[in-house]
Design a protein around this nucleic acid. Structure first.
Lengths: 139, 139
DNA sequence: CCCCGATTGTTTGTGTGCAAATCAGATTGG
DNA sequence: CCAATCTGATTTGCACACAAACAATCGGGG
């Protein structure tokens, strides 16, 4: 009848994920102070896929409608993306990279990749492959 | 001279971490709606270490001073922790579990462990060990 | 004993992140 | 064709998360 449940915080996946994420965010903002990781994800998707509706962009970057709105608003304020109404669907707001957005993305892509590498730097290449493969299955 | 830099968002550690964390947070709030993962971490640390000063508690749970203050405030509002001034150091605010906090922690520990297991359920035991060992090195 | 640097806690500002409610506009099944 | 339904965008409310600035306090060296 004894429920001898040991809860070791440091062994919980959620806590470890939070700490690893903290370290990664810190490395990113040191390397690329102009935008956050979330904002950079938006720039990357728009560079990859071209203009998208705001909701579609949110789905493509794993952000819900309320979150992507805030992110797009801040990117518009910085002049890195532009929005315009959709010609055929009047509900839609099309989001596209501005020239400045394209320029910033190209200017910082290499550093963003370096940040990913820096985050993973305690691991060798084989271990990195393992980790990424395992994490991908937890999505 | 060509900078052929391919940035594949889905392969970036930061993006993958964010998505795995999203899934984990969703599982947690489904299982234990009373508190967030962050709040639960505070309860767990206080159960493990006993009363701590607010700043010390923040360091023990990987939260900065501003963040831990908000978390403690919300836990106080819910009656799960109690604060009192330190007898010897008048700057310090001691934070301790309340009876309700102890009760909630014990009542939900098993479920919290189940959430960790559910997050990792796509992996077998060996893979889970590998993943946790690799992540621990990225802290 | 007193001053100076360090620590503790608080506040403000900015940026995610999600739930829920609302409204406008599109779509489709009967 | 049109009413029920769905989708897109917005707003509000709540909860982290960190930087920066501040006041109160503590502790140690001169």
């Amino acid at each position: 009848m004894t429920e001898d449940v040991r809860y070791v915080l440091d062994d919980q996946i959620g806590y470890v994920l939070r700490r690893v994420t903290q370290r990664h965010l810190s490395l990113f903002s040191d390397a690329i102070p102009q935008v956050t990781t979330t904002q950079f994800a938006v720039l990357a998707r728009l560079a990859e896929l071209g203009p998208l509706s705001q909701n579609h962009l949110g789905r493509a970057t794993a952000m819900d409608a309320a979150t992507i709105k805030g992110v797009v608003d801040r990117l518009v304020r910085q002049g890195l993306v532009e929005t315009r109404p959709d010609a055929t669907d009047r509900r839609r707001l099309t989001v596209a990279l501005s020239d400045a957005g394209v320029a910033l993305f190209h200017a910082t892509t290499a550093q963003a990749l370096s940040v990913s590498a820096a985050t993973l730097s305690p691991l060798d290449d084989g271990e990195t492959q393992q980790l990424m493969a395992l994490l991908a299955r937890l999505t």
